[in-house]
Design a protein around this nucleic acid. Structure first.
Length: 556
RNA sequence: GCGCCCGUAGCUCAAAUGGAUAGAGUGGCUGGCUUCGAACCAGUAGGUUGGGUGUUCGAUUCACCCCGGGCGCGCCA
């Protein structure tokens, strides 16, 4: 994995700031922001460094840019990157714009040829161990559409983090004890009794869904009335097992696989909750009040202190969660990512306070809040409540719109934006869905390559990329050159959505090129070069789709 | 009442974390297949970025105040 041009330019710009010392002795070097201008007339990479420095130094941005650029050019020469850049220029009163050279652009095809679907790797993560926990839905019912979005984001994020060289572990936290689980057990027990024709003691806040009847029926079919005297634990265990199985199956069909399924019960069994609370107590973070045990989180950034052991002696949800996060760090993870629904945002300060109290850096925990997907059938909002048993499940979404469209839809918006998901519309217009637009580009190229294979075999060994000179071809080359930068941006901002935008644009660029230019003609050298280009696009399309968990079909 | 998210074209949303002339899709209209996949492409119409004040070289982006929508605020999980 060699250092990419962007990093080198960044290094050079940092060094360049030295050159301002003679004129501005007070200069303090600042971090360099490199961006990709949206208007291609403004270069391929651009920096606002001169503006930033002018604020600090009080000089004219354009003057500062002029001094920078002198030094910049000689440093670029020294580092041997000047041949990768065509031009460095100052525009619009102080932006410094960089233009990729043809040589650098054409080199991308060779890189793709060499690295195949691994092209685009960039060393942002430096091999750090990163832990990502997501979905973690209580095993009290099937996964809903909200979990679906969390699953899509979490899984794709994990893929992207791997692509920028993090060591990633995906984990699902199973909440297999506590109040909700007991309610589940009682609900199943009651339905089982009813199925046997006896009076069931259905709890007031019990789970009313269809699946509870199914589980009860399953017990009845297997064991008849033999379990009518079984205790609550029996129904809990049976129910959790059945529900976790369907959750795993749903996720697998959604192309989401976890590395570790972590049971809350195991925390209890290993006494970890007790131990971590003892540690906190020893360090003075816990105190007794009103018969309960409190965690003094307010001093650590929370709104108020929180109960960890209730006056009835049982733990709140927070207690095992503290132990769980302590364990994540103890297992050697340097960064933790938690993906939560918006209903948990108030929980963030509390968890960070706990992390801090345990002696870790709260900044090493990133919480990504995924806003809700509001579901519509036509114009009607579909109500969702697990308790009432009314919800649209992830399973239904997969069945109705398919895995690819489902995953893509969930990733099409930024994580902190609400998402409107109209099932009727998604079904009716599924052919107009953007995911098909991208897949169509991939299939189209596959077809071209297939069409050409007799006429120009082994095009990749003899192609001369320098023949690619039209505007459309250059635009494509530039775009696929930028994949590493996009992956880095997506990883840093924890937004898979950047990849969605990128791959949509790539497909559009190819469709435009295809309409205007013919790939396979009697001009052999040009045909070979264009085939090489098409292959490059296809590889990058497939790469991005795979990061998003979407398939890349060769025919549709 | 407090906290978080959101408000951009008729509709659904972008705008690379403060950048350069606010862009796509969809719907409307117009045009493009005897040649590699028309599930595609090109053109056209559509905007006081909810309103206001401020911060600065520059604000859709940041701060403050309104207006409107969603979610959360427990010794629930």
């Amino acid at each position: 994995m060699n250092k990419n041009l962007g990093d080198i330019i960044r290094d050079i710009l940092v060094a360049c700031q030295e050159s301002l010392k003679s004129e501005f002795p007070a200069i303090k070097a600042i971090p360099v922001e490199l961006e990709m201008p949206k208007d291609k007339n403004n270069g391929d990479l651009s920096t606002n460094l001169a503006f930033k420095l002018s604020r600090q130094l009080g000089g004219n941005p354009q003057e500062i840019a002029k001094i920078l650029i002198e030094n910049l050019k000689s440093l670029a020469e020294e580092k041997g990157v000047s041949e990768l850049l065509d031009n460095i220029e100052i525009k619009s009163a102080g932006f410094i714009n960089f233009w990729f050279s043809k040589k650098y652009l054409y080199g991308v095809l060779e890189e793709i040829e060499k690295n195949k679907e691994d092209y685009g790797r960039i060393n942002v993560g430096k091999g750090k161990k990163i832990h990502i926990e997501f979905v973690s839905a209580n095993p009290t019912g099937p996964l809903t559409i909200a979990h679906g979005r969390q699953a899509a984001v979490g899984d794709s994020l994990a893929n992207i983090l791997k692509a920028v060289n993090y060591k990633v572990q995906k984990e699902y936290y199973i909440n297999d004890e506590g109040t909700q689980i007991e309610i589940l057990g009682r609900s199943i027990m009651a339905r089982y009794m009813e199925a046997l024709g006896m009076k069931g003691d259905f709890p007031d806040n019990g789970y009313k869904g269809r699946y509870i009847y199914d589980i009860a029926k399953e017990i009845q079919e297997k064991y008849g009335d033999k379990n009518k005297d079984a205790d609550l634990n029996y129904f809990i265990e049976f129910g959790v097992k059945v529900i976790m199985k369907t959750i795993e199956d749903d996720l697998e069909d959604f192309n989401v696989k976890f590395d570790v399924w972590y049971s809350q019960k195991s925390l209890t069994q290993k006494d970890m909750i007790k131990k971590v609370l003892e540690t906190l107590k020893k360090d003075g973070y816990l105190y007794d009040k009103d018969g309960a045990l409190w965690f003094s989180s307010q001093n650590l950034g929370d709104d108020k202190d929180r109960v960890v052991i209730k006056s009835n002696g049982s733990y709140t949800y927070l207690a095992p969660d503290i132990a769980y996060h302590d364990d994540k760090f103890k297992r050697g993870f340097e960064k933790l990512i938690n993906i939560w629904g918006p209903d948990h945002h108030g929980y963030i300060p509390r968890l960070k306070a706990a992390v801090k109290a345990l002696g870790y850096n709260p900044d090493d925990v990133s919480i990504v809040i995924i806003q809700l997907a509001t579901l519509y059938r036509g114009n009607e909002v579909v109500p969702m409540s697990t308790r009432e048993g009314q919800f649209v499940t992830l399973r239904e979404v997969i069945n109705e719109v398919g895995r690819d469209a489902g995953r893509f839809f969930f990733l099409m918006r930024k994580t902190d934006s609400h998402l409107d998901f109209d099932l009727e519309l998604a079904k009716k217009t599924s052919l107009d869905n953007p995911v098909y637009y991208i897949q169509y580009a991939h299939a189209r190229i596959a077809n071209i390559l297939d069409f050409a294979k007799d006429k120009y075999p082994n095009y990749n060994t003899t192609a001369d990329p320098a023949l690619l000179n039209t505007e459309e071809e250059i635009d494509i080359l530039k775009h696929i050159r930028k994949l590493p930068y996009v992956l880095a941006a997506a990883a840093e901002s924890l937004e898979p959505y950047f990849v969605v935008l990128y791959v949509q644009n790539l497909a559009a660029l190819f469709h435009r090129f295809y309409t205007k230019h013919r790939v396979v003609t009697d001009d052999e050298p040009l045909s070979r070069a264009r085939l090489e280009l098409a292959y490059g696009v296809k590889t990058v399309l497939a790469r991005c789709l795979s990061l998003l968990g979407v398939s890349a079909p060769t025919n549709m």
